[in-house]
């Protein structure tokens, strides 16, 4: 029920984000969701793509430090307060969110959000128990 995110280490140098993205584009890999976390000297690019294994190999082959991170893609009602509702549920169950970001595309009237939890197992239990729909790798590839 989890999906694979690729995390890429990027130095804060001009063109590094471009380098990574153009590499994927050239090989026909589509980025479904993306976020960048940055510090003064470096950043971490986090992406969900359609062909994870190919993308990882490609990035590493071209000298990037890249890892797979297990994240959870959660469907949230695309209406005011939809996210807050979900966050309240997580908070009430003592689930910590490390970071989160949204998908580029939408499936129907739901928004799809990527969550990196401190404790993924516990988070997943809470979500499943509360009938929150979690997207799997096939769902993502089918987007």
């Amino acid at each position: 029920m989890r999906i694979s995110q690729i995390s890429v280490f990027l130095e804060n140098r001009q063109g590094r984000l471009y380098d990574a993205c153009s590499l994927l584009g050239e090989k026909g890999i589509n980025i479904r969701a993306l976020t960048i976390a940055e510090t003064e000297s470096f950043g971490v690019l986090r992406i969900v793509v359609d062909k994870t294994d190919d993308a990882l190999e490609l990035l590493r082959y071209n000298g990037f430090t890249a890892n797979i991170t297990e994240v959870v893609a959660v469907e949230v009602s695309d209406k005011p307060g939809g996210l807050a509702e979900l966050l309240k549920l997580l908070s009430d169950n003592d689930i910590n969110v490390e970071y989160m970001y949204g998908f580029v595309e939408k499936s129907t009237d739901k928004a799809l959000l990527v969550f990196r939890f401190e404790n993924t197992d516990a988070a997943q239990d809470v979500l499943v128990k509360n009938n929150i729909r979690i997207a799997n790798n096939q769902d993502i590839q089918g987007l």
Binding site: S7, T39, V44, N67
Partner: peptide, 15 residues
């Protein structure tokens, strides 16, 4: 140099 082993997707851990 940050290699695969040292790398984490979390900024907190890298810091």
């Amino acid at each position: 140099e940050v290699d695969q082993q040292l790398f984490s997707d979390e900024i907190k851990k890298l810091n």
